[in-house]
């Protein structure tokens, strides 16, 4: 087996005295969609932030493209191709859509050819082209999610981390976000997706991890978890 694109082992993290991740292990294979599912508070966002360098793990190792990046600052991670689409989208509200996108390419590795990348993002999300000079803070939640995704793509990521991209969106937008994820996968992107929306996430997943109280409770191919009686009862309401 080839080495995975991302490999996390023994990851622990705390907020102050409260430990929220307990020896989390998982891998993401290149070209795959891997999902983290789990209830609210299970630790998905903390994992994502640890990967992006926004939370400092207390223990464990994160290897990306064969390199130990556990201590690497966040901007260097972006520069090496690891890109987070954060929970709650976190667009820059006081800047235009286009400025938000251009900021996505602020990492030195993404700067060359960012005009071409901008055109690609606009082709993928025509809505963003229409609203390129509008302030990001004035857009709807779904549009902001598209913007956050587009901004992430501007960094030319080798691995896209998506933290609950459908949170708080209307059903029609949820569907659109999942369609976009499929498109990105088909275009060859590697994706790690954290979702509470277990059913759709598992259907998409090449591999899935179920998190419970900061621990990996179950893992396997998405279809396998989808068929598991425990998962069906606790997360799919069946």
């Amino acid at each position: 087996m080839t080495t995975p694109l991302l490999s996390v082992s023994g990851l622990r993290a705390s907020y102050g005295p409260v430990q929220v991740l307990f020896d989390v292990d998982f891998q993401v294979a290149k070209g795959s969609v891997t999902t983290l599912i789990g209830a609210n508070g299970a630790g998905k966002t903390t994992i994502m932030k640890s990967l992006a360098g926004l939370v400092a793990p207390t223990d464990g190792e994160i290897r990306f493209e064969g390199r130990d990046i556990t201590q690497v600052p966040s901007h260097d991670r972006v520069n090496s191709g690891l890109c987070l689409i954060p929970e709650g989208r976190l667009v820059f509200p006081g800047m235009s859509v286009e400025q938000n996108l251009r900021l996505g390419a602020i990492a030195p590795a993404a700067r060359a050819g960012h005009n071409q990348m901008l055109a690609e993002v606009f082709d993928r999300f025509p809505r963003l082209r229409e609203r390129r000079s509008q302030l990001a803070g004035l857009m709807s939640g779904g549009e902001q999610q598209m913007l956050a995704l587009g901004r992430g793509l501007m960094a030319r990521p080798h691995l896209i981390l998506m933290d609950e991209p459908t949170l708080g969106l209307a059903p029609v937008m949820v569907k659109q976000v999942f369609e976009t994820i499929v498109e990105l996968r088909d275009a060859g992107f590697t994706i790690l997706l954290a979702e509470q929306n277990a059913k759709v996430a598992l259907e998409l997943a090449d591999r899935a991890y179920l998190l419970e109280n900061g621990r990996v409770a179950l893992s396997g191919p998405g279809a396998e978890l989808l068929a598991s009686p425990d998962v069906r009862r606790a997360y799919l309401g069946m």
Binding site: P73, S74, H75, P86, P93, L103, A110, A155
Partner: peptide
Amino acid sequence: WGLRAVIQRREAAQVVGVNL
């Protein structure tokens, strides 16, 4: 721009790769 990004949303600035 990076500086303004930090002012508006420090965490988002880190997410896009601004050297905070």
